[in-house]
Amino acid sequence: MNDHLSDKEILDKFRHGNPDYAFHFLVLKYQEKLYNVIRKILIVHEDTDDILQESFIKIYQNLNNFREDSQLFSWMYRIAVNEALNFLRKQKRKHVFSATSYEDKLNQHIQAGSYFDGDEAQKTLQKALLKLPQKQRLVFNMKYYDNLKYEDMSKILNTSVGALKASYHHAVKKIEKHINEK
């Protein structure tokens, strides 16, 4: 029964009951969804695991400050995306003077197929996504895989709906070009 607690019930229990108990159910409810959001950005499972933990710690520390003017999942989604992007930025900075770029490392990881179920077409799509600018990749993942509405994406990314539509359009064009070059 506890697995089906609503967000409101979880928040009430966290604020006025037993926070650790309530948080446990929040983790059970959203761990897989947030893992997939982060994994699509970071590609590598081990990095995703680190950032998923970091995201949940941030969520725990700030849950009392959550204003219920947005959905709980959108708020957690934003935290996870920000944590993942910060991690990505640090990794790219570390690879500035390295012989191989961070994108090359991720490409090799996809090719090796570590914790990757997809077929060759999906590998090609993931490699094409790595060539996109950060924002376009993010928008494409949100729209294509997570089926988010542009309005929800706009709240998460603090970007106008028009700009998001343009980003998605450019991303699709670049991906199709990459796929047809193969």
């Binding site: 893992y35 499972h45 990757f116 077409a121 999906q122 796929i179 047809n180």
Partner: peptide
């Protein structure tokens, strides 16, 4: 080929019992 032709299912998985 179009990107829509590629299956939309999540290609990433996790070690057994991870969650």
């Amino acid at each position: 080929r179009r990107q829509e032709d590629i299956p939309k299912n999540n290609p990433f998985n996790t070690p057994d019992g991870y969650f």
